[in-house]
Simulated assay, not measured.
Amino acid sequence: MDTVLITGGAGFIGSHVTDALVESGISVVVLDNLSTGNRRNINLSPAVTFIEGDVRDDDLIEKIFKKNPSMSSVIHLAAQSKVGPSLNNPLEDLMINVKGTVTLLEVARRHEVKTFVYASSAAVYGHVENLPITEEEHTKPLSPYGASKLAAEQYVQTFGALYDMNISALRFANVYGPRQSADTEAGVITIFIEKLLSGRTPLIQGDGQQTRDFVYVDDVVKAVITPFLRSNETKVNGVFNVSSQSQTTINQLLMVLCREVGNTFNPDYSSERPGDIKHSYLSHDKITKIFNWKPHTSLNEGLKRTVQYYRSLLEDC
């Protein structure tokens, strides 16, 4: 049976991808250094092998492939995924996001892996006036994080073209759902839920009229594994937005959460963060056309499931 390497498989999105592949009868090797991932997220199925380690470790990556000769695909989700640390330490951001990606690509190439799915970010676009944002839009990252994700994208596509690899670089919108940490750039939903459930007042930075594109993690998982599952049917080397293709204001988001939790909508407001983009949402027409993927979870349903998850954590404490 073929084996899939998932980097960042103990993290938010990666653990859900692991679960989905195991349910499909696929063996998985999870590589995670647990800097942001959590051991409790690791699937305990016999089909899963967990290795604690770093994507920048050339020798370790080589050993993983040698020990798993049936490794056919890589789903690369591990990353430094925050803007703040990339500003404070851009070299570290570069080494994790670019060097780590190239290390994986090079070892995968040597071992004749033909499918490589890479998790990119909408941060590669920067500020865009024309909405919804398509993959053809010019990329102008506003942070070292966005620049490193874009640079890694370029390496992924170059390897795909040079070595006949089946490549998909997925530019995620704001992913949310169970297991997401509040300590992330996209964790506003988790932050709001934790405050509401603990009786504290949520804080909105700005006037709350800024819009974002929120996509539920189960839909994102399907977008991640679809290119992998169809790699024998469709030859692809490209970038794809993964989004809800809709705008939600932060005020609307919090209103839905307040209704779900049973709280009154009464947030505190502060000044907006310097450099924040006012409005953003992504077109998913391209991935729909190529892979017939669409999100199926409404924001109301996704938020309901997410609140239920965090409620269950409190009940277990």
Rank of each mutant, 00 (worst) to 15 (best):
residue 281 Y to V: 01
residue 213 D to P: 03
residue 1 M to N: 11
residue 294 K to F: 00
residue 49 T to L: 15
residue 276 D to E: 15
residue 151 A to C: 11
residue 286 K to T: 13
residue 62 E to G: 15
residue 104 L to I: 10
residue 159 F to R: 09
residue 300 N to R: 11
residue 37 G to D: 03
residue 60 L to Q: 14
residue 134 T to D: 14
residue 236 V to P: 11
residue 214 F to L: 01
residue 87 L to E: 03
residue 31 L to D: 13
residue 178 P to K: 12
residue 142 L to E: 06
residue 135 E to F: 11
residue 293 W to L: 05
residue 33 N to G: 09
residue 136 E to W: 08
residue 147 A to L: 14
residue 165 M to F: 10
residue 18 T to H: 09
residue 52 E to G: 06
residue 35 S to V: 02
residue 175 V to G: 05
residue 273 R to T: 12
residue 43 N to M: 03
residue 316 D to A: 07
residue 115 T to V: 10
residue 26 I to C: 05
residue 199 G to C: 04
residue 93 D to G: 06
residue 131 L to G: 10
residue 80 Q to I: 04
residue 36 T to C: 01
residue 190 T to G: 05
residue 50 F to S: 08
residue 125 Y to D: 09
residue 216 Y to S: 01
residue 290 I to N: 07
residue 270 S to M: 15
residue 152 A to N: 08
residue 296 H to Y: 05
residue 117 V to M: 07
residue 18 T to L: 07
residue 208 G to D: 06
residue 198 S to N: 13
residue 197 L to G: 10
residue 247 Q to R: 08
residue 222 K to A: 08
residue 195 K to M: 12
residue 286 K to D: 09
residue 19 D to V: 04
residue 181 S to L: 03
residue 39 R to P: 00
residue 275 G to Y: 12
residue 78 A to N: 02
residue 78 A to K: 08
residue 98 V to C: 13
residue 46 P to D: 08
residue 213 D to N: 00
residue 241 N to C: 04
residue 209 Q to C: 05
residue 216 Y to M: 02
residue 154 Q to W: 11
residue 14 G to Q: 05
residue 174 N to F: 00
residue 67 K to F: 03
residue 34 L to E: 01
residue 241 N to P: 13
residue 43 N to I: 09
residue 65 F to N: 03
residue 290 I to G: 04
residue 299 L to C: 06
residue 20 A to D: 07
residue 103 T to L: 14
residue 69 P to Y: 14
residue 41 N to P: 00
residue 191 I to D: 10
residue 86 S to R: 15
